[in-house]
């Protein structure tokens, strides 16, 4: 039987000719402190226990949660196992992705897992697993996509009515180690075009004021790092307002009829 999942090109084809790629133009019109506007929708998937859709300009992420459900493994676990599956759609990046999950996607999955697991009360659900499926429909910058995926996953967990101590929101910042420049919520062009070699991505629980996970790249003095962390936290708090708003909206909808 032929492979129906993939669409291969015709056997006879001529490659397209591209013009010389232009120098990237900075498209950022936002303030360095300002993040992109966010659209968040919860409970769109009827078959999943919880779901959320996160969109901020070009970033589009859909996330569904199933569980807590009985764990597939036989080994006894006193707390629930959180599984995150991060997937980039083939068309989500400027270079086409394959269908098989890449190493990069797997490492992203682990990062998201690490960022949101402190917020969930996993010990309340023994012998069960919570599966979070994150599908990136469109991405715009690796850092911002990761941060958005964290927020999206956490809001889906909330939508699934899984007990949490708080919600995690992600935020990202790009910085130049040699100068004082930094850019909150960098997009793809920022990442490619700026000579910046440093970045911070963070998961933050806004109401408790705890950082769940932080990834830093590039050399950075302690004072600079604390400054950037503060910027990240401010951004994460803002994102939290959006999640709260969406949750309230969803709650009122379910109570209305």
């Amino acid at each position: 039987m032929s492979d129906r999942k993939r669409v291969y090109g015709p056997s006879v084809s001529v490659p397209p000719y591209f013009e010389e790629p232009e120098q990237p133009v900075f498209t950022r019109t936002r303030d360095v402190d300002r993040c992109r506007k966010i659209y968040l929708k919860l409970g769109w998937a009827t078959k999943a226990v919880g779901s959320s859709y996160f969109e901020s300009e070009k970033i589009k992420i859909a996330c569904t949660v199933s569980g807590p459900r009985p764990s597939k493994t036989f080994a006894f676990r006193s707390s629930a196992k959180l599984n995150c599956e991060f997937r980039l759609s083939p068309f989500s990046t400027s270079v086409r992705q394959g269908h098989v999950q890449t190493v990069e996607e797997k490492s992203y999955s682990q990062m998201i897992e690490a960022a949101i697991s402190p917020s969930i009360l996993l010990h309340l659900y023994p012998k069960s697993s919570i599966d979070v499926y994150i599908q990136v429909i469109e991405s715009d910058g690796a850092l911002a996509t990761l941060a958005a995926a964290i927020s999206c996953a956490s809001s889906a967990i909330a939508d699934a009515n899984i007990d949490c101590i708080d919600l995690v929101t992600g935020s990202s910042v790009l910085f130049n180690p040699n100068t004082d420049e930094y850019w909150i919520d960098p997009d793809y062009v920022d990442e490619r075009a700026r000579a910046a070699k440093g970045s911070v991505v963070m998961g933050y629980m806004a109401s408790l004021g705890h950082v769940t996970q932080v990834w830093e790249r590039g050399t950075c003095s302690p004072s600079r790092l604390s400054f950037l962390t503060e910027k990240c936290i401010k951004n994460a708090k803002d994102t939290r307002l959006v999640i709260n708003h969406a949750l309230l909206l969803e709650k009122s909808k379910s109570e209305d009829p």
Binding site: I38, Y53, E55, K60, L241, V242
Partner: peptide
Amino acid sequence: VDSSVFEISKQNRSKLKTLLANGSAFW
């Protein structure tokens, strides 16, 4: 618990206005 993120204060509301997108391509 830092309850400021839950309050429906004037400050939060105006902030939310700047953060929320008008709509989505999908919904």
